[in-house]
């Protein structure tokens, strides 16, 4: 079967387009790639197909940069990227290039991806003081066959059979389409097996709604004039700002959940932690996954306060100290919140 026929690749691309549309709202580095991820994936596959027909440096470069960008688009796309990179050596080998030439092609293809990973590690180190922060959840991913939908396995097998049959019958278009479906289903099965089924098409992948910060602010203000709410995770960064500036000043984005450090830095203030429910795309925001050492950094002081939709508020319980937060309290005695940086020097 001529794998490099243009019709086949175009069919695969169409399948990938449909499949990728479901891989939308996930934790990722490149902002809001609801469209970007699938577009990158499609472009990578198109470049792949074009290069197979006519090896040109420009298409190879396009492919390599798409792979790197896919890496930054979050977990399901990382899988596609890894799959494509894994196929590359065999793909290049089909062109019967010399060994040095093959090495050069691999270097050109892999360099942007490797560099993207290195940058990601460095930025994680600089911002979060933990280079492998993002990958900490990986060991917790255990494959569980019971999570895979039976119909999905059946569909994947059926698609495989159809593709094999059509290959024998030399019906390339049907073969290409069915290979695309089979690959997609297989990939989704793998994700489901690892408990990442929220990226599957039949699940609501909408993720936690934005926190209702006004309601949270009202709740906190009712209890203390010196409150401070730390909004955890990447989802928290997307929270809509409060209309009231004083309310907004209560909230501090937090990607590094160290309660003891927060208590020290915001001494004398009443601290709250707002976290999303670890479901759907926000599964990766799970504090228990993310922070192995949660309790050794003061999480034992967290006390459930209230639920706000998909978000949950905890209060940090601390004993009072006499000298705590003198400046802050004096400044806010007449109401209004001041910048935490001004008082804490954090």
């Amino acid at each position: 079967m001529a794998l490099e026929t243009e019709a086949m690749w175009m069919s695969v691309l169409r399948q990938a387009l449909v499949g990728s549309a479901f891989h939308a709202p996930l934790p990722r580095m490149l902002g809001e790639p609801r469209l970007l991820g699938p577009v990158l994936l499609l472009t990578a596959l198109a470049a792949f197909a074009l290069w197979s027909r006519r090896p040109r440096l420009a298409t190879w470069t396009l492919l390599s940069f798409c792979l790197a960008a896919l890496l930054l688009c979050g977990l399901p796309f990382i899988g596609w990227c890894v799959a494509l990179v894994a196929v590359l050596p065999a793909f290049i080998a089909s062109k019967r290039e010399t060994r040095p030439r093959t090495g050069a092609l691999m270097l050109l293809a892999a360099a942007p991806s490797v560099y993207a990973i290195l940058c990601w590690l460095l930025l994680s180190h600089l911002i979060l003081d933990d280079a492998i922060y993002v990958w900490r959840f990986a060991p917790r991913l255990t494959f569980d066959t019971t999570r895979i939908g039976r119909w999905m396995i059946g569909a994947a097998i059926a698609a495989g059979v159809v593709s094999a049959a059509s290959a024998v019958m030399r019906r390339r278009a049907i073969c290409a389409v069915s290979i695309g479906i089979a690959l997609y289903l297989a990939w989704t099965s793998v994700l489901s097996g690892f408990g990442l089924g929220w990226c599957a098409p039949w699940r609501d992948a909408g993720g936690a709604a934005r926190p209702d910060k006004a309601a949270v602010a009202a709740y906190v203000r009712e209890r203390t004039p010196w409150g401070r709410v730390f909004v955890c995770g990447y989802s928290g960064l997307a929270a809509k700002p409060c209309a009231d500036e004083a309310d907004e000043a209560l909230f501090v984005p937090c990607l590094d959940l160290r309660i003891d450090v927060l208590r020290e830095a915001y001494a004398g203030q009443d601290l709250f932690i707002l976290v999303p429910k670890p479901e759907g795309p926000d599964a990766l925001e799970s504090c228990v996954w993310r922070y192995d050492d949660l309790y050794s950094h003061g999480a034992q002081r967290l006390l459930f306060a209230a639920d706000f939709g998909d978000w949950r508020l905890y209060q940090v319980i601390s004993p009072r100290r006499v000298a705590d937060g003198g400046n802050y309290k004096r400044r806010n005695a007449h109401g209004g919140a001041a910048s935490c940086r001004a008082t804490s020097g954090w």
């Binding site: 440096l57 470069t61 010399t98 040095p100 030439r101 090495g103 050069a104 092609l105 270097l107 050109l108 360099a111």
Partner: peptide, 14 residues
Amino acid sequence: LAGCYRRRHDRIIL
């Protein structure tokens, strides 16, 4: 890298 590839200097690209 791209320059080396185009010029077929594959052995020095690294």
